[in-house]
Nucleic acid binder design. Structure first.
Lengths: 120, 120
DNA sequence: ATTTGAATACGAAAACATTCGTAGATACTA
DNA sequence: TAGTATCTACGAATGTTTTCGTATTCAAAT
């Protein structure tokens, strides 16, 4: 069950905001040059695929992610490690940390996290 | 210049093995149910797009990646951080490290790397 | 020389993803 | 009630990626 790029964007919104209407997703994404019915259609397709569930009890249907955020993230990350870093997690991590965008705060978080891994 | 998934697989081989013929790439990928001419065609498309260069001086052409491995990796990683982790590098790193696949050796590498970052 | 095998070129089909127009239903408002 | 706004459903057009069949060229082996 691999989400496409567009599906991923929609999932992000649903994970972030929880149960949402198509209009809410549409407005959150705020993509120039994509119409409302495009997002609607995508979400209907996602329903078909079982990626989301929906509540149709009122006229405006409410959608909710069925795929679990952490699971999908992990899957995509693993795939990236394999396909882009030849299976080396540390190479990915080092490139991520070396990219200038990482704040001191984030580095500290990571150090702390590494400490907790030690304890086992 | 964003490689598609198939293009990425081919680039991996070229980065890994250096200049290679279509047959070498084809055999390395060893994908069931994809024919030789499919790989050939993909590599020709990549040539059009300027992702690879080739030496046609002998009958069997030799291809070489033109895109730089580290640049592409970084680009894909950044994209992933944005689109999957809402811009948080540390969340990506922590998920990567938490995934059980990371050996003690790799963890040590990362710690050493963090130390070098400190020095600035 | 002829055959055989391995290579390229390339159009076109197939598969997949994205986009939107339009029709019809439902609710809200004057 | 009539009109307007907002929603869903969905087919179909478009765009992109992947796949392969076939023609052709070249080189090596018989």
């Amino acid at each position: 069950m691999k989400p496409t790029e567009s599906e991923m964007e929609i999932l992000q919104v649903l994970w972030d905001k929880g149960q949402s209407s198509v209009r809410e997703v549409f407005e959150t994404l705020d993509k120039k040059d994509v119409g409302y019915t495009t997002i609607l259609k995508l979400m209907q397709i996602m329903l078909d695929k079982g990626m989301v569930i929906r509540d149709t009890s009122s006229k405006t249907h409410l959608y909710q992610a069925k795929l679990v955020k952490e699971e999908i993230q992990e899957k995509m990350l693993d795939k990236m490690i394999d396909s882009v870093y030849n299976g080396s997690t540390s190479r990915l991590v080092m490139q991520a940390l070396g990219n200038e965008r990482t704040s001191q705060e984030e580095l500290d978080e990571i150090k702390a996290f590494l400490k907790t891994l030690e304890l086992n």
